[in-house]
Simulated assay, not measured.
Amino acid sequence: MALKATGRSADHDRVTQQDRRVRDLDRDEALRLLATVSMGRLVFTQRALPAVRPVTHLVEGEDIVVRLDDGSTLTSLMTDPGTPAVVAYEADVIDPETHLGWSVVVTGFAYPVADAEEGQGYAERLPPWAGQSTNITVRIRPDIVNGFRLEAAVPPEAAPSG
């Protein structure tokens, strides 16, 4: 594969310059796709500013369960004990060459998992993303679930006839 002066192959340009379309995902498909990956980004407010932390997750029903690696993130999330924090959670799989794939964003309310036994069960199923021990489990109850899939548009000549 020959490289052009840009450092990219001619094949790469052909793939990334193809027509793409965005298809919105319904709630069920978005949550199903979210369950196929183990990492995402937790978005929350820290000192009145947006903050983002990569975390591992699992999907349980419609809830997203994450483990946090430090108390400062939880402190930022839970400014008023007993009151859930508004958060967003995002995960995606997008091919860096073709720019095709999917992205899901969940907006909802985060609650700390208070039951020690339940928290221990999650600790066994959610490995830390960076080798650190995770000590806090948070359950996100989605209110809004948005997602889209980036797909290659089928050229009219390639569309099945009949």
Rank of each mutant, 00 (worst) to 15 (best):
M1Q: 08
M1T: 05
K4I: 02
K4H: 09
A5E: 05
A5N: 07
T6E: 10
R8K: 07
R8Q: 12
A10V: 06
A10W: 01
D11E: 14
H12S: 13
H12D: 14
H12I: 04
D13A: 05
D13N: 04
R14F: 06
V15Y: 01
Q18L: 04
D19H: 11
R21A: 03
R21F: 04
R23V: 13
D24T: 12
L25P: 06
D26P: 12
D26S: 13
D26Q: 14
D26C: 10
D26L: 13
R27L: 10
D28P: 00
A30H: 11
L31Q: 01
L31N: 03
L31R: 02
L31E: 01
L33N: 06
L33E: 07
L34T: 11
L34Q: 03
A35Y: 04
A35H: 05
A35D: 10
V37C: 10
V37H: 04
S38I: 02
M39T: 09
M39A: 07
R41N: 00
L42A: 00
V43M: 00
T45K: 01
T45S: 03
T45E: 10
R47Q: 01
L49N: 00
P50H: 13
A51G: 04
A51F: 00
P54V: 05
P54C: 07
V55E: 02
H57T: 13
H57N: 12
L58D: 11
G61Y: 05
D63W: 11
I64H: 01
V66G: 00
R67S: 06
R67I: 03
L68S: 06
L68M: 08
L68Y: 06
G71M: 09
T73Q: 02
T73Y: 02
T75D: 14
T75F: 13
L77C: 12
M78N: 15
M78D: 15
T79V: 14
D80W: 13
T83D: 09
P84C: 01
P84Q: 09
P84S: 05
V87Q: 10
V87H: 08
A88K: 09
Y89R: 08
A91D: 09
D95V: 05
E97M: 13
T98Q: 02
H99G: 03
H99W: 10
W102Q: 11
S103R: 13
S103F: 08
V104H: 08
V104P: 04
V104N: 06
V105E: 11
V106K: 08
V106W: 12
T107Y: 09
T107G: 01
G108T: 04
F109K: 14
Y111S: 13
P112I: 07
P112F: 15
A114Q: 15
A116F: 08
A116N: 05
A116L: 11
E118P: 01
E118G: 06
G119Y: 05
Q120A: 14
Q120D: 15
G121I: 04
G121N: 11
Y122R: 10
R125Y: 07
P127S: 08
P127L: 07
W129P: 04
W129F: 10
G131P: 09
S133V: 15
T134S: 11
T137F: 13
V138A: 06
V138R: 06
I140N: 09
I140K: 12
I140Q: 04
P142K: 12
F148N: 08
L150S: 02
E151N: 01
E151M: 09
A152K: 04
A153Q: 12
A153S: 03
A153G: 00
P155H: 03
P155T: 09
E157K: 00
A159Q: 15
P160Q: 10
P160M: 07
S161C: 10
S161W: 09
S161L: 14
